[in-house]
Amino acid sequence: MELPPPLFLFIQTNKRCNLRCEHCDFWKLDDADRARYLGPARRHEVLAEFAGMNPLGSVVICGGESMLDLEDYFHISRTCRELGLTCLSVINGTRVRDEATAERMIREGPHGISVSLNSHRPALHDRTRGVKGAFGKAVAALRLLLAARAPGGDTGINVMGLVFDENYLELEDFYAFVLDELGADKLKLNFLQPSFGQMELVDPFFAAHRDVDPDRLVEVIRRCDQRFRLGLNPLWLHQVHMYFSTLRACPDAARGWGSHTRTPEHICNTYERNIMVDHYGVARLCFSGSFPGMRLDKPGDLRLFWREAEFVRAAMRGCNQFCGISHSVRRETSTCASRRPAALFPAARPAAGVARIIPLHADRGG
């Protein structure tokens, strides 16, 4: 079977952030080693090579807060537009402060923009995001972006929500705020998982906020599906239930990424469709450094990595870590309308060992 091309290229721009989110450690980092980052010229070559592999592919701009570096941010989005690629981005909204910036985002920024919100309640968002006033800035950014988009415009403007113990029973009000009061295109649900960039042995947020009753969560989501006509995917909903059933009973959740607990079902397929390129130009099939990657030193290396990484895919087919529920990597999409084929690759063959180490608006759910 011929290897299908990747669907998404995730490209990281920076490591710092201007919020202090409890579920992320990136704000504790900095860009002191920026001199080692992938430069604009080489980044353009990587994007062009990806376009050659899949002219219909999508590029996702990643951070930190990627909009803290506007020159890099708009260089990527403009390059994607020039190459005919779809560009996507999740932002915290703090840098979209005025009409001019919002208009620039619509004119030359990503084709799909998601603003992160942890809740429709300002106090909960601000507390978990670690900065007072963060909610107001995020909502203001959404309103500015929606106002800047011309009627019938094709820029997707969404909200990316985090679901955890303090807000899961309020999802119906959350949907109403996002879809009806703000008028955004979608509320995309991301679920609690080990903290991004976890730097310590203990992950306090993951451990403290996992008490989500899977039965009640599914009941609430089904009610939202009926009320807002979301067209949700029942397979995805089953996996959400399974995920939180496992997480709620997890005996070592305080270890976060170091937890030995695994989901009983394999719910990730990032290795079938994604390439993640980090700040230094190292390509991987997921965000984790647990699997081998390859440095993209010269033209042709992206194709080489994708073609030669089958031994990595074989190992990843047995990975059942909690991050499999992430919006970026989960096998099942939340809506039936956006559902991908069940499998892009043939069934995994047992791996005998590692041979070598390679140094937008049709539905309202997410």
Rank of each mutant, 00 (worst) to 15 (best):
G112N: 11
K137W: 07
S119I: 02
E49D: 03
N92G: 07
A141M: 05
K188T: 05
F74C: 05
V90W: 00
K137D: 14
E103F: 00
S119P: 02
P151E: 14
D185Q: 02
L189Q: 04
A141C: 14
D165M: 02
G156L: 12
D165W: 01
N54T: 13
V90L: 09
Y168D: 03
A100E: 15
A141L: 04
Y168I: 01
P151L: 05
E103H: 13
Y168A: 01
N92H: 08
R107L: 11
M160A: 13
S58P: 00
G183W: 07
H75K: 00
S58T: 15
C62H: 07
H120Y: 15
G133W: 08
S119V: 03
R81T: 07
I61F: 02
V159K: 06
P151D: 11
G93D: 10
L171H: 01
V159T: 09
A148F: 11
L189K: 09
T101C: 08
N167P: 07
F135I: 13
F177C: 13
G136D: 15
R81W: 03
E181R: 14
P110Y: 05
G112M: 09
G136L: 09
R143W: 00
T94I: 04
D173K: 15
G52F: 10
D180G: 08
V178P: 01
I76C: 14
V60K: 00
G64M: 06
G161Q: 06
L70G: 00
V163Q: 06
D154F: 07
R149C: 02
G64I: 05
H120V: 02
H111L: 09
E99D: 13
V131L: 13
N92V: 12
L85G: 05
G136C: 06
D126G: 04
I157A: 09
A100N: 06
I76N: 08
C80T: 04
R78E: 15
A102I: 07
L117V: 13
T79L: 06
G112H: 05
N167D: 12
R97C: 08
Y168C: 01
D154V: 14
L68T: 04
E170C: 01
T86N: 10
V115G: 07
T94D: 08
L189Y: 01
V96G: 03
D180F: 00
R143H: 00
I113Y: 02
D126F: 04
R121K: 13
C62Q: 12
D154W: 01
L189F: 08
S58G: 11
L145W: 03
M67S: 11
D173G: 14
N118K: 12
F164H: 15
E103A: 15
S116G: 12
